[in-house]
Design a protein around this nucleic acid. Sequence first.
DNA 1: GTCGTTCGTTTACGTCTGTAATCATCAATT
DNA 2: AATTGATGATTACAGACGTAAACGAACGAC
Lengths: 123, 123
Amino acid sequence: MAISEAEAVIMEVLWRSSPRSAEDILAEVGPQQEWQEGTVKSLLNRLLKKKAVKAERDGRRYLYAPRLPREQYVSQESKGLLDRLFGGRVAPLVAHFSEQRKLSKKDIAELKKLLEELDDEQP
Amino acid sequence: MAISEAEAVIMEVLWRSSPRSAEDILAEVGPQQEWQEGTVKSLLNRLLKKKAVKAERDGRRYLYAPRLPREQYVSQESKGLLDRLFGGRVAPLVAHFSEQRKLSKKDIAELKKLLEELDDEQP
DNA sequence: GTCGTTCGTTTACGTCTGTAATCATCAATT
DNA sequence: AATTGATGATTACAGACGTAAACGAACGAC
């Protein structure tokens, strides 16, 4: 089942560092999200049900950790967008960002480097 | 308000060609989606409420057309993903697809061309 | 041993989504 | 004029989502 936006916020915290307690997660996420404790608990339970995280007992409480790797999540999401909006092709996506002036100098330099490396790989 | 996935299917049809009637839309979208007429009507009404499409009377019925430009929708969606998953930077996004072997020969060629043109623009 | 504190579990509730069924309206047909 | 067919509008309903409050169990402080 799909991971919702609010759930993804929790996942990002866990991907940054895990395992960690619910309290701990709230502490990191609470300020920006203005979530109550119950909210974080609910989200964690939904993520457990979806098998996106696992929980390991630690005395009184649980420590939570991702079960779904970030890389896999990123892939799904990215591929979804690419297919839906750009016919599954990467070049039009980059062209889009280019038109929107969303390519920084740094991006451009990195992209060039990346493309050169690709040439080296497949001569 | 955000456009949902099912709604986006309707929008794509309208972006391809508009204005067009509900029946017409159903004809194009029905086969793949296996939607009933009522479903399409509901989605159109929600899109009207969200001001994403407009309807112009044509005798008995309406002809629908996008009000939200595709470019704007694509921008929102793309930027959202970029920010959420790649820290708002394009190069890591492309690197990701590269790692996933999602870069076709054609993509690579086009990207190179694109980057060269960017150089020309800002000498 | 009782009481508050701390966790997790269960329940709640309004909104959004996907997917329609039903109702109302009006034009064409009999 | 009454009926039928097309079309849009209203209503429905289950499941997901965002956001929590309420409940319950257990551990530590008295």
